[in-house]
């Protein structure tokens, strides 16, 4: 099993490769992203685009764990991030609490919220599309609360985040490395899940939930756990981003800003794959930047380009590259065509 192969198929399900090789894709991805600030040559603009990219990828990893892992369509990644970020901003602004308390509290609140939504969906036996409807509704509720409670949240103008001001987080480059560190934790965590018994449970549930239950896998518990992990990561990413920027607004976390990009990035990169969100996030960010001069037309072109990409690589770019690699190496060894386990 090649390194690329294990990164592509997502779950080797067994410790066939050593610890080093298992996490090598994570290390490489983080190292490459770590080169951005020195290569940006002091451009604040590039660093801020890269920061947003890393945050988007982290959201993508969270969505990938919960949707790619257990098939729960959690359409409230942005809302969960908003809950964590606004909690921290409000507690520090109104009560003057320090970052060390407000950030974990916000993340805990987002985690609880995401887990509660998942628990509700599991209890009510909602299928994928209804989980999507319920969580999308929750997203809209959060968004409208942020807009409506303007005496507290500042409405659409947003809020200056007190916590973290004067710390290293406010330095653009150090702030970038802070969000990158969180992404590293997220990717390594996803890898660890893939290699663990929990990863097995994910694959089983995704394939057939009833069969998983018959094999003794606690489907409800596994799903809620996946949602909690994803919500914690999304909340942490949103909150950290807010502290790096020093400012939060409803647009930062709006469905159209966060969730739409996350879905596109993960679907393009390859659902359930370790590096899918990284590849997809980079592509989405590049598209965003390239198409920026087009103004209003941007969204239409953006959509058309994505449509073509989806038609060309329907299961995502990372798996597609993996298959070609696998096929090429198989032919090299004279074993003929694509492997049976290609998925």
């Amino acid at each position: 099993m090649s390194l690329l192969d294990s990164a592509v198929t997502g779950a080797p399900l067994e410790r066939r490769e050593g610890l080093l090789r298992g996490y090598l894709p994570v290390v490489l991805a983080v190292l490459v992203l770590g080169l951005v600030p020195p290569l940006a040559g002091g451009s604040r603009y590039l660093v801020s685009v890269a920061t947003l990219l890393v945050v988007l990828v982290t959201y993508g990893v969270a969505f990938n764990v919960v949707f790619g892992g257990t098939g729960q369509l959690l359409l409230c990644i942005g809302a969960l991030a908003a809950v964590a970020a606004y909690t921290s901003a409000l507690l520090s602004g109104e009560l003057g609490w320090p970052l060390a308390i407000t950030l974990p509290l916000g993340v805990a609140l987002a985690t609880t919220g995401g887990a509660a939504l998942s628990w509700l969906a599991v209890r009510r036996r909602l299928d994928t599309i209804f989980v999507g409807v319920v969580t999308l509704t929750a997203s809209l509720v959060v968004h409208n609360l942020l807009l409506g409670r303007r005496e507290l949240t500042g409405g659409e103008t947003g809020l200056v985040v007190q916590a973290g001001s004067g710390t290293a987080l406010r330095d653009p480059v150090l702030g970038y490395y802070a969000v990158l560190a969180l992404l590293a934790v997220g990717l390594a965590g996803h890898r660890a899940i893939q290699r663990s018994a929990l990863g097995w449970a994910f694959r089983a549930i995704r394939d057939d939930a009833e069969a998983a239950a018959l094999a003794g896998i606690d489907v409800a518990r596994t799903k809620v756990l996946a949602a909690a992990v994803a919500s914690a990561l999304a909340g942490a990413a949103g909150s950290l981003y807010a502290h790096v920027e020093g400012f939060v607004s409803p647009t930062t976390f709006a469905f159209a800003t966060v969730d739409v990009r996350v879905i596109v990035a993960v679907a393009f990169g390859g659902l359930g794959t370790l590096l899918g969100p990284v590849v997809g996030g980079v592509v989405v960010t590049l598209l965003d930047e390239v198409l920026r001069p087009l103004g209003q037309l941007r969204l239409a072109v953006y959509g058309a380009v994505l449509l073509v990409l989806f038609l060309a690589v329907p299961r995502g770019a990372v798996p597609a590259v993996g298959w070609s690699w696998h096929r090429a190496t198989a032919r090299w060894r004279g074993r003929g065509t694509s492997p049976a386990g290609g998925r």
Binding site: W200, R203, A204, D208, L214
Partner: peptide, 22 residues
């Protein structure tokens, strides 16, 4: 069950390994 309920995307080996989860 009569409809077997295997994990169709997983291999024979992986199906068997899931039998004793966790």
């Amino acid at each position: 069950p009569s409809d077997r309920r295997l994990f169709p995307q997983l291999t024979v080996r992986e199906n068997l390994l899931l039998g004793a989860h966790p």
